[in-house]
């Protein structure tokens, strides 16, 4: 049975791309979220094996969403997606409980590596 993944990013463009990379590798994308609020909501409903989380989103950013999700589920596995140049945010996200991060522009192989690492 394949692992389930929740993809969170405010750009359809990014969600589509990440989704394609994941499904291409046999993962099942069970949900998408555009904002931190939606991410937390979807997480509690879908309980995915892993979450990909954009750092910057409207209505609760990725970092707050990480905190909220970890409050719901301390074992939540979250992979941050960040554009270049926002290292401070990435560090904050890691400290909030995200397990790892990937940097845009993505190389599919690196995304998949990170997913595998986080899933453990």
């Amino acid at each position: 049975m394949s692992h389930t993944i929740l993809v969170c990013d405010d750009a359809i463009f990014m969600r589509t791309m990440i989704g394609d990379i994941l499904t291409g590798a046999g993962y099942e994308v069970v949900g998408e979220a555009e904002t931190g609020v939606q991410a937390v909501d979807q997480y509690s409903r879908l309980k995915p094996d892993l979450v990909t989380m954009d750092i910057v989103m409207p209505e609760m950013g990725g970092i707050d969403a990480v905190r909220e999700i970890r409050r719901l589920d301390p074992d939540a596995k979250i992979l941050m997606c960040s554009a270049m140049g926002q290292q401070a945010l990435v560090v904050e996200a890691i400290q909030a409980g995200a397990k790892d991060f990937v940097v845009k522009p993505f190389q599919p192989s690196r995304v998949l590596e990170a997913v595998q690492r986080v899933l453990g």
Partner: peptide, 14 residues
């Protein structure tokens, strides 16, 4: 900030 950040990410990906 958010809008620019998102645009940058998409452009970098492309």
């Amino acid at each position: 900030f958010r809008a620019m950040h998102t645009l940058k990410g998409m452009a970098a990906t492309m």
